[in-house]
Amino acid sequence: MRDDDVPGWWQRLGLDGLVDVHVHFLPDQVMNAVWAYFDQASEHYGTAWPITYRTSVEERLKTLESLGVRSFPALVYPHKPGMAVWLNGWARDFAASTPGCVTSGTFFPEPGAGDYVREALESGTRIFKVHLQVGDYDPRTDELDDVWGQLAEAGVPVVVHCGSGPIRGRHTGPGPFGEVLRKHPELTAVIAHLGMPEYAEHLGLTSYPNVHLDTTMALTPFTESLMPFPRELTSRLGDLQDRIVLGSDFPNIPYEYAVQLASLESLNLGDDWLRAVCWDNGVRLLGL
């Protein structure tokens, strides 16, 4: 399947389009820094990682529109203190001027985090993103306890990159974030990338009632060559039909968007499963 085939794919399923909970738009200087990092992917990850959609903001938005991605967040995340408030303001403005984009936010363990997260929630932020490997912080820190509590009470989802792929961090893996969930069991969390490569352990976190996992880059040939998904867990994905949600990592992917959808279809879990993953669950999580 190629990108030109995507609209026909979701139309065959009887959908009105796609809802993708893991899309990135960032301030230009930040996105350029991210792309520069991926330019050195062979050094960082041991494999090349060409950015397929390395185009202008306008062109990227046109691409999402042509694919039929009806709703998406512009996920932002800081790598040091003092960035989150600025990124939240940027994301709020971007969503306000971009059809289909829902307001996203982020946070970092720093003084005042609880205050600016409260402000973001009050201003209508509908999804947050944190990246424990890039941020290099422990999610169990006292500075974030109030933040997790606020998000749990509000029922607003947070996309959490806590898996140890593509490279392990000091605080990645299911253990640290699993302890956050033990303290805040009602938290609506979306484990990014199906928790790769600790797939089974992160699937196990769905014992908490509001834990979901997004499909971002998982199951694609690119990722299978590095961190293969154990096929004995496929039936588990089927059982979790209401907890798996479409994510792509657009635009920072080394293949066409269609590859993610084809990889999901190849699981042979049925059209109802695909409809739930590619539309229903995203609609519910984003409050559309």
Rank of each mutant, 00 (worst) to 15 (best):
D3P: 05
D3Y: 02
V6E: 09
V6P: 10
P7N: 04
G8F: 11
W9Q: 10
L13H: 06
L15D: 08
G17Q: 03
G17M: 06
V19S: 12
D20H: 02
V23W: 01
H24S: 02
D28F: 06
V30Y: 02
A36H: 12
Y37R: 13
Y37S: 13
F38E: 05
D39E: 12
Q40E: 15
W49C: 12
P50H: 08
P50Y: 09
I51M: 13
T52E: 13
S56P: 03
R60F: 03
L61V: 04
V69I: 15
S71N: 11
F72P: 02
V76K: 03
V76N: 09
H79Y: 12
G82V: 06
M83L: 13
M83Q: 15
M83Y: 01
W86I: 00
L87W: 04
W90P: 02
A91Y: 09
R92Q: 14
D93G: 10
A95Q: 03
T98H: 07
G100H: 03
C101M: 03
G105D: 08
T106C: 14
Y116E: 09
S123F: 01
I127T: 04
F128I: 10
H131M: 11
L132M: 03
V134D: 00
G135Y: 02
D136R: 08
Y137Q: 00
D138E: 05
D138H: 10
D145S: 14
D145F: 11
D146F: 00
D146Y: 00
W148D: 11
Q150P: 04
E153A: 14
A154I: 04
V156M: 14
C162I: 00
G163D: 11
G165C: 14
P166Q: 05
I167V: 14
G169K: 06
H171W: 15
P174W: 09
G175I: 05
F177G: 10
E179N: 13
V180D: 11
L181I: 02
R182E: 15
R182V: 05
K183R: 15
K183S: 12
K183A: 15
E186P: 10
E186Q: 15
T188G: 13
V190P: 01
G195R: 10
G195Y: 08
M196F: 14
E201N: 11
G204T: 02
G204Y: 07
T206V: 07
V211K: 03
D214C: 03
T216P: 02
M217I: 12
A218D: 07
L219Y: 07
T220W: 08
L226K: 05
L226T: 01
E232C: 05
L233G: 09
L233H: 00
L233S: 01
L237N: 07
L237E: 07
L240G: 07
I244C: 02
D249K: 05
F250I: 07
F250K: 01
I253W: 06
P254C: 12
Y255N: 06
A258E: 11
Q260K: 06
L264I: 11
E265D: 10
N268S: 13
N268M: 12
L274G: 05
V277Y: 09
V277M: 05
C278D: 00
W279A: 00
W279I: 08
V283I: 14
L286Y: 05
G287I: 01
